[in-house]
Simulated assay, not measured.
Amino acid sequence: MLRYVPQNFHVPLTSVLSMPADPPERPAAPKDAATVMLLRDAEDAGGVEVFLQRRVAGMAFAGGMTVFPGGGVDKRDADTSVRWAGPPPAAWAEWFSCPESLARALVCAAVRETFEESGVLLAGTDSAVVTDTARYAAERAALESRELSLAGFLAAAGLTLRADLLRPWANWVTPEQEPRRYDARFFVAALPAGQRADGDTSEAESSGWRRPAEAIADAEAGHSMLMPPTWSILAELDRCASVADALARERQPIRKVTPRLVRDGDQVRVEVES
């Protein structure tokens, strides 16, 4: 069982006393979401670095938290016209134990959100990956404002979605006590050669590459805040010797994890069944 103290996740102290001791009779339905851990090899002493962003404090969900790029699935992410390379939607449906149509949408959302929030584009041709994304700056802004769909962008640019660059990693659901809930599927991907990740998004106040252990240490010292999924996954990534090691992880059905919030005086404990 994993336990976290309140300053390290997304239940603010001011809401502890008003938080129900038990889940509501009708918990909010979780919205499907996709999150991507972008990795690169650390330059010294081995291990990996992961791209993290601190969300703008005023955001309705996870404001002020340090997170991986990601967001909710848009209904247009299920567009079957997207040119696709790599494991088919049926394979992702098996890994995430979900319908094939949702699996397609999750992969497309992962690619779209990563591009919107970090400028990294997991697309190209069947044999090559985009190396310079600066030419698509206008399209990136149009995607973020929802003026453009991923399918429309890729088709106009003559690009193929590269599902082979992604690996399934985890599936966490927001606790039932929360009024805003997500069923988030986590993917891992290597930073493509020639591309750079940036923080040019309205949703983040800062961005950068960190070793997983350093990000955890920052949270423990009170310099940043992590939600339980982020903390848990950072601990897993810290055990990876390299990006290749992370990508070589066996692909198998992912267990869905739904933490339970337990009020304990002026603190909230997060319990996760092992």
Rank of each mutant, 00 (worst) to 15 (best):
R83A: 15
M19C: 03
P27D: 13
E116S: 05
T80E: 15
S145T: 13
F51N: 03
T114C: 11
G70M: 11
G71N: 00
A109Y: 02
E147H: 06
A105M: 08
A90R: 11
P69S: 03
A123E: 08
Y136I: 02
Q7W: 07
D32W: 14
T80R: 15
P88G: 13
E117I: 03
V67G: 03
A62I: 09
R54S: 14
D132C: 10
P69C: 07
K75I: 09
A29C: 02
L122Q: 08
K75A: 13
T114Y: 03
A128W: 07
G63T: 09
G70Y: 02
E147S: 14
A103V: 00
P30G: 11
E144K: 13
P89S: 04
F96A: 01
P12I: 03
V11R: 02
R104M: 08
R83F: 06
G124E: 08
P30K: 14
P20W: 04
G64C: 06
F115I: 00
R112V: 09
D126L: 09
A60R: 14
V56G: 03
P89R: 05
S145N: 13
G86M: 02
A141T: 05
E25G: 14
R112L: 10
V107Y: 01
E144S: 13
G71I: 00
A91H: 05
P20Q: 09
V111P: 06
R112T: 05
S101A: 14
R104Q: 02
V56N: 11
A110R: 07
A45N: 07
P24Y: 07
P30F: 05
G71W: 03
P24M: 04
V107K: 00
A141Q: 07
R146G: 06
F51Q: 10
A33P: 04
S101P: 07
G47W: 01
E113I: 02
E117M: 12
R112A: 09
A91K: 05
E147M: 13
P88E: 11
T125W: 05
W92E: 04
A142Y: 00
V67C: 12
P20L: 06
G64I: 04
C108V: 09
V16Y: 06
R54V: 15
A45W: 01
L122D: 08
R104T: 03
A29W: 04
L52F: 04
D44E: 08
R40P: 03
T125L: 10
G63N: 12
V82I: 15
D74G: 10
E117F: 11
